[in-house]
Nucleic acid binder design. Structure first.
Length: 370
DNA sequence: AAGTCGTGGGG
DNA sequence: TCCCCAAGACT
């Protein structure tokens, strides 16, 4: 890692901010410095690209224009606003945070990063982003862009996946950022990281800060940032039972903890939870086992048949699901033992559903069409 | 400290 | 198909 002189730091600040003033992106959440706007955008942007976020942000602001509106919204509406964005605990934590603000802060945002960190769902990065952008506090906002940009500029070879590395970057960036325009500086770093200093195919030759990029000058740009790779997703087998009860669809709500919490799917059963002798299962035996499962777990009498379609596959960060599809039917009955409800098409469209459920519908309809 | 928690895009 | 990556936080 290299060190910059005060002169170099000054030159970098001027070059970066001059570039940002003319080339900075015009984004919906940059129209003002409202902390609510900054906050919503920052939460949405966690692990998510700008292009994906923009339409979600616009709709979210239309549905929940204020902290109070967010605090009072039904959770199903919140999840519907977040449907497809992923990491759904983000939006549930946002509502907890909104209620926390109203209950403990008289509806007023704390104005320092240190205080913002006390709020639910706001970690070190988001606290720095809100404090610098909305309240002009000269604090860094260390996200993936900051890791990538500064590790290359200064050839910092600390592993960014290690807890503790963030503090190193915070110390370095604190010394470099200008105290008069901290929000613009942090956002300029993000714009730089999303344009000339991307992860795979950087265009440093045309970058405004090319001459400050030590890794590039040394021909080692793609060696940064240093990170340890993640394990591959664990495979898990499921059976999806697309079930009609009379004219309605049988839908289950997932539990309040864990993956896809509180979202809705068709009944989804882990193959391991069926009493099956082997891993490779003839479809007839699978149907029998699922019928027994419906009786045992839901007290529902199911009739079912296999669907002649390829299994649905869906990969999450840590799991890869392979889902066999069955078509089923139950007589209108008591759903007291079933964690869900039957819904018509109209009600179905109101339920928040994960991407994997969309894939199940698509595959199911492809079978019906044949 | 290391796992958990989604989805879309690109090579 | 698979891997990696993208404005992280929580446990």
């Amino acid at each position: 890692m290299i060190e910059w002189s005060p002169t170099t730091i000054k030159a970098f600040q001027t070059t970066l901010l001059t570039w940002y003033d003319t080339a900075g992106r015009d984004l919906p959440w940059r129209r003002d410095q409202e902390p609510y706007h900054v906050w919503v955008s920052e939460i949405m942007l966690q692990q998510t690209q700008v292009q994906t976020v923009i339409p979600y942000y616009e709709r979210f602001m239309a549905w929940f224009p204020t902290v109070t509106a967010l605090a009072e919204a039904p959770e199903e509406r919140l999840l519907k606003a977040w449907e497809g964005l992923g990491y759904y605990s983000r939006v549930r934590n946002m509502q907890r945070c909104a209620r926390q603000l109203l209950a403990d802060y008289e509806g007023q945002w704390p104005q320092t990063a240190a205080a913002l960190t006390e709020l639910i769902g706001i970690g070190p990065y988001t606290a720095g982003a809100i404090a610098s952008i909305a309240f002009n506090e000269p604090v860094p906002a260390v996200d993936g862009n900051a890791y990538r940009v500064f590790s290359r500029l200064l050839e910092i070879d600390a592993d960014i996946t290690k807890p503790g590395t963030r503090q190193l970057f915070e110390r370095v960036i604190s010394r470099i950022m200008p105290h008069d325009r901290p929000g613009d500086f942090n956002q300029a770093i993000m714009d730089l990281g999303a344009s000339y200093m991307t992860a795979r195919q950087p265009d440093t030759e045309h970058s405004p800060v090319k001459v400050f990029n030590q890794a590039y000058l040394d021909g080692k740009e793609l060696d940064y940032p240093v990170r340890t790779k993640k394990p591959r997703p664990q495979p898990i087998d499921y059976v999806a039972v697309v079930t009609k009860m009379g004219p309605d669809w049988l839908m289950t709500q997932r539990g309040s903890q864990g993956m896809l919490a509180n979202l809705w799917t068709v009944p989804l059963i882990k193959l391991a939870d069926l009493d099956l002798p082997t891993e490779t299962v003839p479809s007839a035996e699978l149907v029998t086992a699922v019928i027994a499962y419906f009786k045992r777990e839901y007290q529902l009498t199911l009739t079912a048949e296999p669907l002649a379609v390829r299994p649905v596959t869906h990969t999450f960060t840590h799991q890869k699901w392979t889902i066999q599809l069955l078509s089923g039917q139950v007589a209108p009955a008591d759903l007291a033992f079933f964690a869900g409800k039957s819904v018509n098409e109209e009600a179905l469209s109101q339920l928040p559903m994960p991407k994997v459920q969309t894939k199940i519908w698509d595959r199911y309809h492809s079978a019906e069409a044949k």
